[in-house]
Every structure is written in C-alpha cells, then in structure tokens.
C-alpha cells in the first residue's frame, strides 16, 4: 500500500468531513497530498516524491505548476472530488494531468484514491475539467428556458427524470445545492472560455446578488 502525507492548507471542498481517504494518511510517505483551499498557493515542486496531489477548485493545475508551451508536466497531479454547491461530495474524483505528466504518478494517485473507495476519471488540465465543463451549459439552458416560460420547473424536471433517467431535474438540483454556487462556477468558466453558454444565467446572477447582500458584502 502506498503511504501518503496530507498537508492541510485550509477548508477542503473535496473532503469537508471524515472519509477513509483522510483516515488512511500517514505521518510520512512517498506521496504528498495538498488538501484545502490553499493547495495551489502552497504547492512547491519536489521531484523526490512519487506523486504530489494538489486539490483544485475552479483553477487549472497549471496555476500551481506553471506551464511550458504545451510541454508541462511532472510528478504533480490535480484533483477535485466532484460536488455541486452545498450538496454532499460525490464519490467521483477528477484527476488532472498535464501533457507531460509522469504516467506513474497518475497511477499512484489513482491507486490511493481508489483504495479509499473513490472512483477516478482522468482528464487534462482544462477549466471545468469534465463535469462542470459539460453540465453548466445544460443548467444555464434550463434556467433560461424556465425564464422564457417554455416549460414549468416541475414539468422540466419530471421530463428529464423520466425521459433520461436522471435522478434529479436541473431546477430542483440547482435550488437544492445553491444557485449562487452555479453562478460562481459559470463565472469562472466564462472568464476562461468566453462563450455565451458559460455566462451565468439570469437566475443565477440574481441568486448570487441576493446571497452577497444577505452576507453583508
């Protein structure tokens, strides 16, 4: 079993509470896991490690490691356990590699995550990784279609659940996990990609402004 050390850099969105991944950490090991909101800032290269895992939010891994004309890559991988807003984290970890990342480091990272009962999808270092990049335009369209009155929220949610087998419709899911969080993620994606499908939908903007006002910002 690979031994790994966890370095706490602040509140972690991936592991907000107890989890086997945290419990299995050691006091020393060949792998370092930078956990928490300050992981990118705390990153320092260390070629002696089999792998360094850096927890990501909406950032790219390159913000920690730097980039080099498409040749970047080392023993460092990014990771984020997928989680929608205030919802519970899922069992899915998106593991981020760069073009020249050492495949052995990817496999070590995958192994320690899977040993803790998590599922791993490997992806390249793009904003939104796999899931946010795919689902945020869908959520934006659902919010826009609701605004346009083409279907009620209940009908839209029911249609998607019955027709596509999704466990939850887009509107009820966003309401449950916090529309203002959807705003934050889409804003970050829109800044990166600049395409209108990532621009925060009106309802998300409204929710964000209300959340800010209620928080006294």
């Amino acid at each position: 079993m690979v031994r790994y050390v966890i370095v706490d850099t602040g509140a972690s969105r991936s592991f907000p509470g107890p989890h086997p991944f945290l419990e299995r950490a050691s006091a020393d090991g060949t792998v370092t896991v930078l956990l928490g909101a300050g992981a990118v800032a705390a990153y320092r290269p260390d070629p002696s490690k089999a792998a360094i895992l850096v927890e990501l939010g909406t950032e790219c891994l390159g913000e920690a490691t730097g980039e080099n004309a498409g040749l970047e890559g080392s023993n460092t991988v990014g990771f984020a356990r997928f989680r929608l807003g205030d919802g519970d984290p899922s069992d899915l970890v998106e593991l981020v590699r760069q073009p020249a990342t050492d495949p052995a480091s990817v496999e070590v990272a995958r192994a320690i995550l899977e040993e803790a009962g998590l599922q791993v999808s490997v992806c390249s270092d793009f904003a939104g990784r796999i899931l946010d990049r795919l689902i945020r335009p869908y959520y934006n369209e659902a919010l826009t279609r609701l605004d346009e009155g083409l279907a009620s929220a209940a009908d839209m949610d029911l249609t998607v659940k019955l027709g596509l087998g999704y466990p939850e419709g887009p509107i009820e899911l966003l309401e449950r996990t916090g529309l203002h969080h959807h705003h934050d993620v889409t804003k970050a994606l829109f800044e990166t990609y600049g395409t209108r499908h990532y621009a925060p939908a009106r309802r998300a903007v409204v929710a964000k402004r209300r959340a800010e006002r209620e928080a006294g910002e």
Binding site: S90, Q119, S121, V122, C123, I130, L131, L134, Y166, P167
Partner: peptide, 12 residues
C-alpha cells in the same frame, strides 16, 4: 472517463 464521471458524479 467521461462516462464514469457522469455516472459516479451525477448518478446518471
């Protein structure tokens, strides 16, 4: 990887 992410992350 895409399919695994969608199924494990969103419960599809």
């Amino acid at each position: 990887d895409v399919d695994r992410a969608i199924k494990a992350g969103l419960g599809y």
